[in-house]
Write a protein that binds this DNA or RNA. Structure first.
Length: 872
DNA sequence: CGATCCCGCCACATT
DNA sequence: AATGTGGCGGGATCG
């Protein structure tokens, strides 16, 4: 070939035409051989542009090979690239003027024009997002570099990231083949799964986390566990063997880093990751020492990666405002549901950001949060991840501790809450025309198909436990024995149905149980479910609440139609609720492994299976009672409570419960990142009207919610019983706190504790004392929540340890009286309310019990009741 | 002045 | 040894 080329080439030297040529090129190079074009040397040509860059381009153009290819390409491709022309590229600039003239500034492409993001867009514009299977496109680095007028080095940056997502793969030296986005969703799913393994807990912790160290510790642990698996997953696409051998090579770090970065998004409930957090997480070494510079470098790399991902329409830049100020962060706007299943979920293409943004704005509860945040911060302690170790400390729950450290850790969690400002900055960037529709950033990725979701649950159920389970188990051995949900459940409530939620992160229960329609989504065990859910569920509680109130409520009202409700919910919030589900197969192993254990996944799974449809299932359940937390009370409690207090755990429910015979429905909302630790359960039962009312009337929440720490949920089975509550006279402080603690703290723990929510029932288990809960955790997580919530949260956390430790006695009353409840509630079985714990007056009765019979403190069972009644 | 991140040196890997 | 890759971080720009 070369010869060939030369012959021609020599003669031609099309120096001048440079730009034009460029546009034409395309990936397809017929010839496979990797030709490495020689580096071009520059020729002295005057370029307007960056001097060097232009020169190079020109040179390259001049080179025979290039030309040849170009020609060929041209044939193949008309001008798709035209796009380039559109852009303000440098190329154009070149053209623009007269020659030399302005070398100076004028044309000088500003830095932006040379940005990696823009370059990446140009790069992507050259190839079809969804190439036909038939067409194989090869990419020659040199060629591209010359065409785009940049050094090859820059192309590596792009290609490495693309390679991490399997959009391209390296075939030979200097040659890459273009795959396009066909496998993107699969890749993302894989990453999500891997991410759950690696970072699932971490993230949770992280958010809450105070200490870097701890987190690191945790992280490390995780990696150890999953790393191998993880690797294999990632490598899947490539046949080449090398994969396994993970050599130690440092290389590819950018690729790996890119994958990890993406995982963080996929694992994050809020889908928002701040750079600093990501950097911390991604620094694997013992960073202690190196820190600063290393951190800085890491961040730099992350910018490189972020630019490429932004060009791909997978993320966009936002700013998270925290106490400290605003931090740069990125929000995932790519698909969150993969599984091949429904891609379509997200309707919008990423490009259509405007809408989403608007939504966001609307959605954002952030502001609120922000305000509340501070308080939260203080009070709330976060569950710490590391706690395991730390646990040793008995817990001194001290609320007071402010969390200086929190600030750091907050990140993820915090991120969510705080307001996010989207970047307006490069509008263009995001959506190149050629891109395939990306799921919009709509925040929700709710599944369009409600049905699917529900059903899924059942089926999936089994899966749930797995991934997390492993970790959880490992972490929390305690679970098994004590908590077995089953035990409790059946035993406890004969009549009632229970649901056990395994560790999954979210659950949404909607619909009337009665009907059988119930659907739930279960979360999955930590991993899968959580991930997905997370994605969807990301909304911060506060937000949820509000939203829920608006729309959500109504839907819920329709008890019958859960799906609808869900959707609505989802929609409203940016966040996403996760309705969805379970997913993943791979968990099963775990389940297998832990057959016997109590609540562990397996069981849970079963529980889930329970039929939504068949109401009767004893075990399964449903639960109806709704519980409300009385926000007020809670608040009080919280406040009152001392961190130190060990509350015994008793909870009281505030009271009222829902009378409804029917099983209430709940929505479980995933905690947003910030909130990550909390899960909300909303009862669906209440009438829509109620909901609506609530919204209007109540600023915050009318709906009763139970918040449970996600982590907890994941690990712990949740049981809900329908009936409800009696108001207990709980001790305000202690009880509440206890309850709270349960919920919140859990996450940190690991969650093995089952939670029961029931109307009547009581659980008497005891909770094993779990040392783990830290009193200390920073409050931040709570932040996002309404202030009240926050407080409560704080309290909770603090106490949680306590709670955990103490067995709680629950009181349950049967349903019946729910004084306060808004009318609707009682009346309708359907009504749904959503409340936020803190905010409302609703009564909630919480009860918890915990006991773990078995093991350590870890497992705790609790029962929460919420009455549907609204205070108002 | 902090956030971004371009640029290209340079080490290591391949050929 | 030449060339391919890609880590890395100084320091320029941007906002």
């Amino acid at each position: 070939e070369n010869i060939f080329d030369r012959s021609r080439m020599a003669p031609k030297t099309p120096i001048k035409s440079e730009p034009v040529d460029l546009s034409k090129q395309k990936g397809c190079t017929p010839e496979r051989n990797p030709i490495t074009p020689v580096k071009l040397v520059d020729r002295p040509q005057p370029d307007p542009w960056t001097p060097t860059a232009n020169l190079k381009m020109l040179v390259s153009a001049a080179s025979p090979d290039m030309r040849d290819r170009e020609k060929k390409k041209e044939l193949f491709r008309p001008i798709e690239n035209s796009e380039q022309s559109d852009m303000p590229d440098s190329l154009q600039y070149d053209m623009v003027d007269d020659s030399t003239v302005d070398e100076f500034e004028k044309q000088r492409p500003s830095r932006k024009q040379k940005s990696l993001g823009l370059l990446c867009q140009k790069f992507l514009a050259r190839y079809p997002s969804y190439p036909l299977s038939t067409e194989k496109t090869t990419i020659s680095l040199d060629e591209v570099a010359s065409i785009l007028g940049v050094e090859r080095r820059r192309i590596y940056d792009i290609v490495n990231v693309l390679e991490s997502l399997h959009l391209v793969s390296r075939v030979a030296k200097n040659q890459y083949s273009w795959h396009g986005r066909h496998n993107l969703s699969q890749t993302l799913q894989t990453l999500q799964e891997a991410g759950e393994l690696q970072y699932g807990e971490l993230m949770t912790f992280f958010q809450a986390k105070e200490q870097d160290v701890d987190y690191k510790f945790v992280e490390r642990k995780k990696e150890a566990i999953s790393d191998s698996q993880f690797r294999s997953l990632l490598e899947f696409s490539e046949p080449d063997c090398a994969s396994a051998s993970a050599n130690s090579r440092k290389d590819k770090s950018l690729r790996i880093m890119s994958q990890k970065f993406v995982m963080l998004f996929l694992v994050s409930k809020t889908k928002i990751v701040t750079l600093d957090i990501a950097a911390k997480i991604l620094i694997e070494d013992t960073q202690d020492t190196v820190d600063h510079s290393k951190f800085k470098t890491k961040v730099r790399r992350l910018y490189d990666i972020a630019n490429v991902l932004t060009s791909l329409g997978l993320i966009k830049k936002v700013h998270v405002t925290e106490e400290r100020g605003r931090k740069p962060a990125f929000k995932w706007i790519g698909p969150t549901e993969f599984s091949g299943k429904t891609d379509e979920l997200s309707g919008h293409s990423p490009t259509s950001d405007p809408l989403p943004e608007a939504q966001r704005g609307a959605c954002t509860p952030y502001r609120v949060c922000a305000t509340g945040k501070k308080k939260f911060t203080r009070h709330a302690s976060q569950p710490r991840g590391s706690r395991r170790k730390a646990c040793s400390e008995p817990s001194s729950p001290r609320q007071k501790r402010q969390d200086p450290h929190c600030s750091k850790t907050i990140n993820l969690a915090a991120v969510c809450r705080p307001k996010i400002e989207e970047d307006t900055r490069n509008p263009s960037t995001t959506s190149p025309p050629s891109f395939p529709p990306v799921p919009a950033d709509s925040d929700f990725c709710v599944n369009p198909l409600p049905q699917a979701v529900f059903p899924v649950v059942q089926t999936d159920v089994p899966c749930l436990s797995v991934p997390n389970g492993i970790s959880s188990q490992a972490l929390h051995p305690s679970m098994p024995a004590a908590s077995t949900p089953e035990n409790g459940k059946p035993t406890l409530l004969p009549n009632q149905h229970f649901l056990c939620f395994p560790s999954s992160s979210l659950f949404m229960l909607c619909g009337s149980l009665q009907e059988n329609n119930l659907k739930e989504t279960l979360p999955s065990t930590g991993d899968m479910g959580s991930k997905r859910t997370e994605a969807q569920a990301a909304v911060p509680p506060a937000a949820c609440q509000k939203r829920s109130s608006h729309k959500c409520v109504s839907p819920s009202a329709t008890a019958d139609e859960e799906p609808a409700a869900k959707k609505q919910m989802v929609e409203q919030s940016d966040v996403p609720l996760s309705l969805v589900v379970p997913k993943k197969p791979f968990k099963s192993p775990k389940a297998e492994s832990t057959p016997g254990d109590g609540c562990t996944s397996a069981e849970h799974l079963e529980a889930f299976h329970f039929d939504l449809t068949s109401p009767a299932a004893p075990e399964a359940a449903e639960k109806e009672s709704a519980k409300h937390l009385d926000s007020q009370e809670q608040e009080k409690w919280c406040q009152n409570k001392d961190p130190g207090e060990p509350s015994t755990g008793k909870e009281h429910t505030s009271k009222e419960n829902v009378n409804q015979p029917f099983p209430p429905q709940y929505l479980h909302v995933w905690p947003a990142a910030g909130l990550s630790s909390f899960n909300f359960l909303l009862s669906a039962n209440q009438a829509p009207g109620a909901i609506s009312l609530a919204a209007s009337q109540l600023p915050s929440l009318s709906v009763p919610c139970v918040m449970v720490p996600s982590a907890t949920l994941a690990s712990f089975p949740l049981v809900c019983s329908p009936a409800i509550t009696s108001p207990l006279t709980p001790v305000p402080d202690s009880s509440f706190s206890a309850a709270a603690s349960m919920n919140f703290s859990v996450s940190g723990l690991a969650s093995t504790v089952p939670v029961f929510i029931g109307t009547t029932t009581v659980v008497s288990p005891k909770v094993s004392p779990v040392p783990s809960a830290d009193p200390q955790q920073p409050a931040h997580p709570a932040l996002h929540l309404s202030p009240v919530l926050a407080r409560s949260c704080g309290a909770v956390k603090l106490e949680s340890p306590v709670c955990m430790g103490h067995p709680v006695t629950l009181k349950l009353q049967q349903p019946s009286s729910a004084p306060l409840t808004p009318k609707s509630i009682r009346q309708a079985h359907n009504d749904t309310f959503f409340k936020t714990p803190g905010s409302l007056e609703d009564h909630v009765a919480w009860k918890k019990n915990e006991g773990n019979q078995t093991r350590n403190a870890s497992s705790v069972q609790r029962r929460l009741e919420i009455s549907s009644t609204s205070p108002d």
